[in-house]
């Protein structure tokens, strides 16, 4: 009996391996090897032209230049982190909240033209991000549609969106008359950036890109939420109705808790995606004006392909990787998707 079972198990194991091998090979060749190779390069001085084997080993120099040594590399990296931090803080909560709202709306059983709305909201997500970026450049021009709408409301005169390096928070402070930094903010600095620079907020240009990013990703996230909502069994809803729960109570105590795993998923892919923002920056601002839309992902490109410094580029990529991992773990603690 035991022998038969063992034989069965062995043949199952062989079949199992046979099935996973193709994917495994793909993962190793196209994902794991490049990642380890990048890690290796981040400890070397490689110009990106010669075969990587001819580069020289420099230890942790690349990381030190980015994190510890005073200089333009650390300054740019700190700027990139600051810019992207504001980008994440702005985009992730907004896109998650709106996508959830949209999903709840189009999930209504008695909504007319449901599939039309679902398609319409999803449309931006399947359009090329470069094409959308170009359309946004037109919309945000000084004589573009956005200013046409905003001018009467804000009583402003053709705001310059796409070449405006002023921080949104700095602008806000100046409304209250604070235009020069208090001494302790101007004199203390972290990673070469003064505290005043750290609290600038996203630049107006970055803000425009944040609006764009929120708008494009909404559809995908809405779809994920919609799938989650439809996974909630009708019986649960009906049972609470019988118990006399109001619509708000049903939403707050049934829908929301049951959507926790979906919410965690959406927040996680949102966090990862926003820390890696590249194409919109590449198409719209190339890191400018005045480096206020420089992000770590764009810095990787700039250092690697324009600065011929692949070592620095890969080091940035790995620090970014660590940032994403740590933040995802923290978020997992906070949201706690397993506990429903």
């Amino acid at each position: 009996m035991n022998a038969v079972r063992r034989r069965l198990q062995t043949s199952e194991a062989i079949a199992g391996w046979a099935f996973v091998t193709p994917v495994l090979i793909g993962l190793v060749v196209f994902l794991i090897v490049p990642i380890l190779m990048a890690l290796w390069i981040s400890f070397r001085d490689w110009n990106g032209f010669t075969p990587p084997g001819q580069s020289t080993f420099v230890g942790v120099d690349n990381y030190r230049a980015l994190l510890l040594e005073q200089g333009v590399k650390r300054f740019d990296f700190a700027l990139a982190i600051r810019n992207n931090l504001y980008y994440v803080l702005g985009v992730v909560p907004t896109q998650t909240a709106i996508a959830f709202l949209l999903a709840v709306v189009v999930n209504q059983k008695f909504l007319r033209g449901k599939s039309f709305f679902r398609t319409a909201y999803y449309f931006p997500s399947i359009t090329s991000s470069i094409a959308i970026s170009l359309i946004f450049i037109f919309l945000f021009q000084r004589t573009g549609a956005i200013n046409f709408l905003l001018n009467p409301i804000l009583a402003s005169d053709n705001m310059n969106w796409l070449e405006n390096a002023n921080g949104v928070f700095h602008n806000l402070f100046s409304v209250f008359g604070v235009t020069t930094p208090p001494t302790f903010l101007a004199e203390n600095s972290v990673m070469g950036l003064t505290l005043w620079q750290w609290i600038s907020g996203p630049s107006v240009t970055m803000y425009a890109i944040m609006i764009l990013a929120t708008w494009t990703t909404l559809g995908t996230l809405m779809l994920v939420f919609l799938a989650g909502l439809q996974g909630i069994p009708n019986e649960v809803d009906e049972a609470t109705m019988v118990d006399g729960a109001t619509a708000w109570q049903r939403f707050r105590h049934v829908t929301l808790p049951m959507m926790k795993p979906t919410l965690f998923f959406v927040l996680t892919i949102g966090l990862i995606g926003t820390w890696q923002v590249f194409d919109q920056i590449f198409a719209i601002s190339a890191g400018g004006p005045q480096k206020t839309t420089l992000t770590p992902a764009y810095l990787v490109y700039r250092e690697g392909f324009r600065g011929s410094s692949m070592g620095t580029a890969t080091a940035v990529a790995f620090i970014l990787f660590i940032i994403i991992i740590v933040l995802t773990l923290i978020q997992r603690r906070v949201v706690n998707p397993d506990e429903v």
């Binding site: 390096a165 324009r306 600065g307």
Partner: peptide
Amino acid sequence: GFQDAVDTLNDGIQ
């Protein structure tokens, strides 16, 4: 390697 300095100058000029 001078590209970093050129970028800094360009941003300043803007």
